[in-house]
Design a protein around this nucleic acid. Structure first.
Lengths: 156, 156
DNA sequence: TATTGTTATACTCTATAACTATA
DNA sequence: TATAGTTATAGAGTATAACAATA
């Protein structure tokens, strides 16, 4: 159990991760922004899957996932085939073109990250990855609690 | 210097921090979303300052900062007084009402975080904070490199 | 009736660019 | 001319709700 000042600092640090995200986004081509890129990455890493599972891995709503998926499907980077076992669902699979794009992005991002993080050891990055994964786990668990209650509002 | 697989994982982890950010946002009242809340927090922590300095601390554009500041100023949580030394700039200062709101938010968030992170030690949180700060530093430095170049685009 | 996926709508956060007022 | 701040516009990302098709 940590102290309150640590929590406040954590909230600030998490908010400020936005700068890093935007930095990473700028490495991506306009045609394939961060959301769609994450779709390609997960399909490559975990293999073909249904949309609902993809949404779980992305930790976002299925409606949003559906749009990202449409984006990459329209460009031929993935294909959607109807599941013969359950014709409601569609199987999402990376195409060779998608794999090519992904490899190109990975290479490009690696170069840029290697420059930005040249003083980070492999172990440093591994530790940060582990802590972020743990943080996410702590938040997806029983839920972070209810929405903030009543606020004494100053009239607009 | 870390390996490529670690970088790829880092990109995913950073993207996925969004879940945590949204979890934190849900703790906030509708009247004071995350952006404005960060303004209050920084003014409390660093004392009165100009908008341009606030934008630096938030690591966002001054135009965006200006809107967040207007949001909290309209609700009486901060006051903007013209700097007598330089009448172009305005001094931003937390009001007692703003301080009250902030304390209420801090208490509420601390409770929720204490529940979500009950198995994190003070040291764990401190380490994560330090690594996130370092990560941000690595990205604000000489710049993460140029935008992604040409993409062999599949016709839409 | 429940589930998979899609679409419509709205909100937050952000950047770029054009503008005002002051230095 | 340059700087502090504001506003207009646009884009990415998200959630909620309503909907279609299938189970």
């Amino acid at each position: 159990m940590a102290e309150q000042s640590q929590y406040a600092e954590l909230v600030r640090q998490v908010s400020a991760v936005g700068v890093v995200k935007r930095g990473l986004s700028r490495m991506l081509p306009a045609e394939c922004p961060a959301g769609p890129a994450a779709v390609l990455h997960l399909l490559d890493r975990h293999g073909e899957m249904q949309l609902i599972r993809l949404a779980e891995l992305l930790a976002i709503d299925t409606s949003v996932t559906s749009r990202h998926v449409s984006h990459v499907a329209e460009r031929g980077w993935i294909e959607r085939s109807t599941d013969p076992c359950d014709r409601r669902s569609r199987i999402l699979r990376l195409t060779p073109a998608g794999k090519e794009l992904l490899d190109r992005l990975a290479e490009h991002c690696t170069d840029a990250l290697a420059r930005a993080l040249d003083d980070w050891s492999d172990d440093d990055v591994g530790q940060l990855n582990a802590m972020l994964a743990r943080l996410r786990g702590s938040f997806s668990g029983p839920g972070p609690g209810p929405r903030h209650p009543e606020v004494t509002r100053t009239p607009a």
